[in-house]
Amino acid sequence: MKKMNDEEIQKWLEENRQQNTELPEGDAKAYDFLFNLLETEPDNGLPYDFAAKVTRKVQAEQKRNSELRSYLISMAVVTVIIACIYGLLSMVKNQQSIGILSVIIEYKWALILSIFSLLTIQYLDTTLIKSNIFKRH
């Protein structure tokens, strides 16, 4: 077989390696050996339970997202209900509704702080605690 250059040998091996044909002259033996080594899989790999771990992580994330969604929906529903009750109250007993509004305005910072604290606790619980449960396990 005629002597080939590096490029020709590489191309030849890509096309003919599996067919057990005689190697061309030149550096073909070295390249053939190299191709064998390049196809050797590394000794290390992912742990045997890798797929189960990933699945658990995805499930945990899905659960977190659905919990967050349900919290937001609940908050929206509660807000709408309160608004409706207040609207009805203002139609039936206007004086009392003004009184309630003035109490809300007076304690607005306490109310805002309570809502903000509740949301912060919920957020920290979701991001810092639940998201780390499956990390590296």
Binding site: E41, P42, G45, A51, A52, T55, Q59
Partner: peptide
């Protein structure tokens, strides 16, 4: 369908490992 996803991970984990590991 998490079982189907787990099978997908099992099927392609070596492919992903080879790429990321290198």
């Amino acid at each position: 369908d998490m079982r189907a996803f787990e099978l997908l991970v099992k099927q392609y984990e070596r492919l992903v490992y080879f790429v990321v590991n290198r």
